[in-house]
Design a protein around this nucleic acid. Structure first.
Lengths: 214, 214
DNA sequence: TATAAAATACCCTTATGCGGGTATTTTATA
DNA sequence: TATAAAATACCCGCATAAGGGTATTTTATA
């Protein structure tokens, strides 16, 4: 027995985007918006209390508090039948990758694509398919290549990167970690080698890019 | 003779937000959306060719190509009768301030506010009033305080900051700008003094924070 | 056109970073 | 418990950054 309506829940920390999506999707006969919220936790609560037929969750992936990534993982674990569409401002390489690898999302669309693509995505995904914005696919292949060559930093190394980012000198890092300045220098050298950088600026950019900091 | 309809044009680089706003405003009897585009330049073109009664322009303020700030200034100069509502993801202190000081915008609303506030804002502004989201007002007073202590970097200094961020050494910066390495060192010293930093990392963080880069 | 601001350039010294090594001890893990 | 990985620590040396000055020329702007 096939369901007629596609039931949707929306999470986005920008109320106006929710209002917008609601307004434009409600005109479609096959789509029904059951729930919308600015709080990912509120969605989880809703699903737990009242999981009456939500098919697809549309979620922003850059939200404060609990980010879209965590939300996607939670939904995946607790409500595996629900499909997820990530909605994003841009194709953030790292997040895209995490979402697809760890959360098994079904779709990823950028906010700069129009309502037509959104509806197409919803219908494809509801039918069991997947949908990714073209830009996302491009970003993804770019990122995958980088990742293969990526060497992981050790805990100690990450610790030191964080102190470098806090503008600590080698001397201060040594004092903070109760180790010799020579050791700090060694770690620093290894970090540069692994990250393929050769100065602090390159390193800090790498750290921000790979989310080593924050 | 009072006009019944409020004629609106929308600029936002995210098509989905345009679709959303269009969808939710078109239900209102007093509001008519005359034009919408992802390109600020397209709006200027439209206004020049066909300035038939646009009352309010709703514009995103963080757009590529020509930013909302420039758009606001242009509209102010060339079509002073048109009122501007800035639409933003967050209350970016610097931009908020510039918009209000230099562009005389009539309203500033955040995207995390709902459709009710948007409509209220439009109606208030159409009647000759102003409307700012509460968060924006808070951000504004905070920023005003900071700004008093803030010293502006010169064009040359910003140029050099950008090269530092590109991991250029003083020697390379000197060669790139066809100036002496001594001059670069002087600029660097002045930059550190002005930004109240004392190493490249602090400087780069400052630059990112104050949007000197990109 | 007078004045201020910006851009240019030099002097000096000390501190720190960065790159090349090698080597030992500690901690995981197969 | 054997082996690898990680963390520790030292050597040397050069290059560069950073902090303290002063001073001239160029460019805006009132």
């Amino acid at each position: 027995m096939k369901k007629e309506l596609i039931n949707i829940a929306i999470v986005d920390d920008h109320q106006i985007i929710i209002d917008g999506i609601v307004a434009l999707l409600n005109n479609h006969a096959t789509i029904k918006i059951m729930f919308s919220t600015t709080s990912p936790l509120a969605l989880i609560d809703f699903l737990k209390k009242n999981n009456n037929g939500i098919d697809i969750v549309i979620t922003d992936i850059l939200m404060p508090n609990m980010n879209g990534l965590l939300l996607a993982k939670t939904i995946r674990q607790e409500f595996p039948a629900i499909k997820i569409i990530a909605l994003s401002m841009n194709g953030e390489g790292l997040i895209v990758n995490s979402l697809i690898e760890d959360s098994n999302i079904s779709g990823y669309i950028l906010k700069n694509t129009g309502k037509t693509e959104l509806i197409t995505a919803i219908e494809k995904i509801s039918a069991g398919g997947i949908h990714f914005s073209e830009e996302v696919l491009i970003e993804l292949t770019k990122f995958r290549k980088v990742k293969e060559e990526e060497i992981r930093l050790t805990h100690r190394e990450i610790e030191i990167v964080k102190l470098i980012e806090k503008e600590y000198s080698n001397t201060k890092i040594a004092k903070t970690l109760f180790i010799s300045e020579r050791t700090v220098e060694t770690h620093r050298k290894n970090i540069f080698r692994k990250t393929q950088t050769n100065n602090v600026i390159g390193l800090i950019k790498y750290a921000y890019l790979h989310n080593l900091i924050q």
